[in-house]
Design a protein around this nucleic acid. Structure first.
Length: 468
RNA sequence: GCAGCCGUGGUGUAGUCCGGUCUAACACGUCUCCCUGUCACGGAGAAGAUCGCCGGUUCAAAUCCGGUCGGCUGCGCCA
């Protein structure tokens, strides 16, 4: 017999069906037993009349047992319709029951929201936690939005290109995750903090419009909106202005909201553009929450922040870049950059997109001329040697007819967080780590056997007795 | 690295300030029995916790003190 998905059962009144799924509730009335059965599509009520000898196994059923049930779909009597469930007008009168697998009682409730349960317990049993409706919805939304974006960008001439995960460490920016090399002992790959350099090189290659859902890795202490590994929607385009990039992204964001979250409303279209100076002056922060009603869960207030200073002084008095060394300064400051003067006044073409007080993306027009890019590295005090060692390949690449280009990257998980009304980023990621970076279920990082370390030429120096 | 908060049956909490009444309470869950219309069914009963760990104070510690481990949130950090 062919399986019927539970959501389709109301269309099969009077027919015999086979359903497959999990028991999520059992109500034993002695001679009849009601069970709610759930599959990927929905939930429906099954009724077992125990006078039918072949159904006596129904008494053994417990929550989360996996079952195959055959029976007749019956319309419920008028006064027994449950209008709280989509299949509430019908019930399946079982005549055949097969228990496909039993289940232990789960360590915590899987039917509620799960917010009150200790998060480490949830992460240890993430595969069970993911059964709850809220997380199923979040993960499905993740896929929906990704598919939507892929279609949207592909239709507009973008192509999706993968860039390497085994990449190179760069001294600037976030701390790298390193991967030891077996063939080149003593040397290390780094996991990418972003595909920044590769995507710019793709512009040199002439692809003109690139995008990627890129896993990025940063070894910095975690927060409720930060994970070691996270997903960026990464984009880069040739021959574009700042306004072109912002415009395309704004339209895409509006489309996502109107098509996939029609119940949400965007506070202001076009998105307001706020200069960094203005943001600091008015909100005292460069990612302001400009919602007029913060209590409204369906209000989305996007804004762009622009005109950031390119450089700032560090504690030890050196210059460092505020966002991205590959950015181009605004046109009127190009000369200052090249001549390395009025450094504190130089503004960058950087644009950040902020949603309800969360930075959900940022990008810029890039410095596609080698001498201008070199000036940035000189201002932050890198020696010619260091520049050559770390960025020589970029400078060289740009000397082969690099087109003007620019792009943006979204923090995809954060965006999803806001759209799904989640506060913590872990709620929208299938298998997140805990706040200290330990993985769900498998409890990594873990100790590595001596033999494996030797193969890599690695000697582990134990710090006090802290590492057990 | 720093700061704040948290750790009590399977889950979530109460009790901690002000030590004895805690022989640790409540809700949910679990188990047994009863029930033909429930829908997070209902009824009756039962099991289940030496209160994160170590030490100290005391006649007496879930409760006070010291240490330690684990966790959460934020700051630093995150081009």
């Amino acid at each position: 017999m062919q399986r019927t998905y539970i959501k389709d059962t109301p269309q099969k009144i009077g027919e015999r069906v086979e359903i497959l799924g999990w028991v999520i509730s059992r109500r034993d009335h002695g001679k009849i037993i009601f069970c709610d059965i759930k599959d990927v599509s929905g939930v429906c009520q099954v009724i077992f009349y125990l006078k039918n000898e072949s159904l006596k196994d129904a008494q053994k059923l417990r929550d989360w047992f996996v079952v195959k049930i055959e029976g007749i779909v019956n319309k419920r009597p008028e006064n027994m319709i449950n209008d709280k469930m989509p299949t509430g007008e019908i019930e399946i009168s079982a005549d055949k029951l097969e228990i496909l697998n039993q289940s232990q009682t789960p360590p915590f409730d899987l039917l509620g929201e799960g917010i009150e349960i200790n998060e480490n317990l949830r992460l240890k049993y993430r595969y069970l936690d993911l059964r709850r409706n809220r997380l199923q919805q979040n993960i499905k939304r993740r896929a929906e939005i990704q598919l939507f974006i892929r279609n949207y960008l592909s239709k507009r001439g973008f192509i999706e290109i993968e860039t390497p995960i085994l990449s190179k460490s760069t001294p600037e920016g976030a701390r790298d995750f390193l991967v030891p090399s077996r063939l080149h002992k003593g040397k290390f790959y780094a996991l990418p903090q972003a595909p920044q350099q590769y995507k710019q090189l793709l512009m040199v290659s002439g692809f003109e419009k690139y995008f990627q859902f890129a896993k990025c890795f940063r070894d910095e202490d975690l927060r409720g909106d930060r994970q070691f590994e996270f997903l960026q929607l990464d984009m880069e385009m040739s021959f574009v202005t700042r306004e072109d990039v912002m415009d395309l992204n704004e339209k895409l964001l509006i489309e996502i909201v109107t098509k996939l979250y029609p119940h949400k409303k965007i506070q202001e279209i076009p998105f307001p553009k706020i200069t960094y100076k203005e943001a600091i002056h008015k909100y005292n922060i460069d990612k302001p929450d400009i919602r007029k009603d913060k209590a409204d869960p369906n209000l989305l207030a996007f804004c762009w922040i622009i005109d950031f200073p390119f450089f700032e002084k560090t504690e030890d008095g050196k210059w460092t870049f505020t966002h991205n060394p590959f950015s181009k300064p605004t046109e009127e400051h190009m000369e200052n950059l090249l001549k390395k003067r009025n450094i504190d006044k130089i503004l960058t073409t950087q644009y950040d997109i902020v949603l309800n007080g969360l930075e959900i993306g940022g990008g810029s027009i890039r410095n596609h001329q080698p001498e201008a890019l070199k000036a940035v590295f000189e201002i932050i005090g890198l020696s010619d040697e260091k520049i050559k060692e770390n960025f020589g390949h970029m400078l060289e690449a740009f000397s082969f007819g690099a087109p003007p280009h620019g792009g943006i990257a979204w923090g995809f998980d954060r965006l999803l967080c806001v759209l799904n009304n989640e506060i913590n980023i872990r709620e929208v990621i299938p298998f997140p780590t805990d706040g200290n970076g330990k993985t769900s279920i498998m409890d990594s990082p873990s100790v590595i056997e001596k033999k494996q370390l030797e193969e890599l030429g690695i000697y582990v120096k134990h710090n006090k007795e802290k590492n057990k």
